[in-house]
Design a protein around this nucleic acid. Structure first.
Lengths: 339, 339
DNA sequence: ATGAAAGCGCTAACAT
DNA sequence: ATGTTAGCGCTTTCAT
């Protein structure tokens, strides 16, 4: 039989209130009783009942984690890693994460996630882009919300984002430091915040180095940033420009596509053309040569989102706090030092 | 303010006991009161407090879902889909799923998942292969366990498995029906249950058709069933055997690898060589030609595991019940009818 | 068919 | 510094 706070109290020869105080590290307990109680807790291998304490404290002890099903099922485990990060972080404390997906075409008529309806969570973490209508309806529920890797247009929510501008600068500076001057940018939908920010970083870095960004070698004509469009973009770029010595692709998928084109077209990587991506996906290492990139710390993003949620729940955080998680330059073999 | 059972009782002019009975569909309630109560519930948009009911009923209302981190982070979203299946199914009822990962090299010294230690789950679903030591220690905790897509050697647990033998038969019969006689088998580690079972199905089907399995065209020399080894296996097979007209690969990854070899070697697919895989991964459709395969219903596997867990919890299921989930032949363009 | 009441295990205000 | 006690919202006997 599972032991209760009463059993512990009896065994330690104290009241249940004292046990409760010890459990919550209240400091007005003599170290003597504290030890007695702790021993009893250990001896009985006592764990407090979550239901009971939640009932009193009017909390659920759960955090909801929402992403769209296509984000969850993506081949590249980006959001899965973010989830894992929040779960890792939650393990340190008393909270549990309830993961649920919504259809990516979530509409007005679809029911809200059950844990919202049933009020089984104390707050909700939203990862990646989700439909506006969900956000609106969530807001009505008055639950604390934290966004990660996405921020709704209102900007009124606490959020954890990748520092894309810094990443863009990092990547571009790396190429500049390697002596490159004609650095192409390959990106997808410029309306997507992460891509436009990476482009901003790219321009900033060029600017600082006194290089004038050349619109002819900035390709953002293919919205979806995947391999296929990376290939096509590179093809277009190189058919018109012969003097490009380096490419900064807005993500690894496009970089990989571009690499395929370069190989098909007979360019040596990195002998003739250097290339850097963004994300650090597993496939990078399988490439020939392995891709230099900007690493996005997915686990850390998730962990940070969880910490932010905790501080929101504890009333420690302002409602629209923004956290920019730094990225890291990973130099491998696809970029060449011209100096 | 959230409404409670008291509010409902007051509004409906009945006692809280009556409300509780209505909520649990007890039949000794007059349809008149029932309606009154249901109206009150709706008007107040009342949801019972999980903490309170769990406290009384001594349940947690949660099911733990454990997989190894590499299974969770696999590029091919196999286990992610299984998880989604259990989550979909859980949505229909009152239970929540707590997903956690363990290190794939989980050892004696690693702590058990927190929801086990804290007794925050009523049962545990284990997906995919996990270390024996975890199983042993889990057993000690006396929690109901259901396996999905893996069964520990003792066989003493309820489990949901893919019907691999049926799948092997399905695949092989398809080729036989298409008039093939020299059908190669490409597989990985024969000690892995799913692979050996698929091979059994293959042999059975050949046997039934009166074809003698030729050991020279059964390749199981490369343990890990990935693209690379699919390529190598096909290469070996075709360098020694010129009369193979069809391949049954134990999974799509190996099939894709084999297709790459066939293309490199100049074989027409399916003109000269037909090929069928197993799994039905997304990549199949991108292939040229799209791969004929045996579909494994991942969502269904997860849903079935959840249902099994529920019936175990309700005491309706025997402790070692085994459920074989049928697979489905998906004919696309990589197999050719010789007739 | 319905209600009264006990009690699940815990927290926190209050008393000592 | 520690104990007493009133509930949190619900389920479930036991009365009526």
């Amino acid at each position: 039989m599972k032991s209760t706070i009463k059993d512990v109290a009896k065994k330690a020869g104290v009241s249940i209130a004292t046990v409760s105080l010890v459990m919550h590290n209240h400091n007005r307990i003599s170290s003597d009783t504290r030890k007695k109680v702790q021993k009893a807790i250990k001896d009985l291998s006592y764990f407090p009942s979550r239901s009971a304490s939640n009932l009193v404290s009017k909390k659920t002890g759960n955090i909801g984690f929402i992403l769209t099903d296509d984000h969850f099922l993506r081949t590249e485990p980006f959001y899965t890693r973010i989830f894992l990060g929040t779960e890792f972080e939650a393990r340190e404390g008393e909270l549990y994460i309830l993961l649920t997906t919504i259809k990516s075409n979530f509409s007005e008529d679809d029911p809200l996630p059950r844990f919202i309806l049933n009020k089984s969570v104390d707050g909700v973490i939203i990862a990646g882009k989700i439909p506006k209508t969900l956000i609106n309806r969530l807001t009505l529920s008055n639950l604390p919300i934290v966004f990660v890797d996405y921020i709704d247009s209102s900007g009124n929510y606490p959020v954890v984002l990748i520092d894309n501008i810094q990443g863009g600068i990092l990547a571009t500076n790396h190429l500049i430091n390697y002596g490159h001057k004609n650095i192409a940018f390959i990106g997808g939908d410029i309306k997507h915040p992460s891509i436009s920010e990476r482009l901003i970083g790219y321009k900033k870095a060029l600017d600082t180095a006194g290089i004038n960004p050349d619109p002819n070698i900035i390709s953002t004509s293919y919205p979806y940033p995947d391999r296929q469009n990376g290939y096509t973009s590179a093809k277009e770029l190189f058919s018109k420009n012969k003097n490009i010595t380096a490419i900064f692709a807005c993500n690894d998928a496009m970089a990989i596509g571009a690499m395929h084109y370069l190989k098909d077209a007979g360019y040596g990587i990195p002998e003739e053309v250097s290339i850097i991506g963004f994300d650090d996906v597993e496939a990078d290492l399988m490439l020939e040569p392995p891709l230099t990139t900007v690493r996005v710390p997915k686990i850390e993003l998730g962990a940070e989102a969880f910490r932010l949620m905790k501080s929101v729940l504890e009333g420690k955080s302002l409602s629209a706090k923004k956290i920019l998680v730094p990225v890291e330059l990973i130099v491998r073999k696809s970029t060449r030092d011209l100096n």
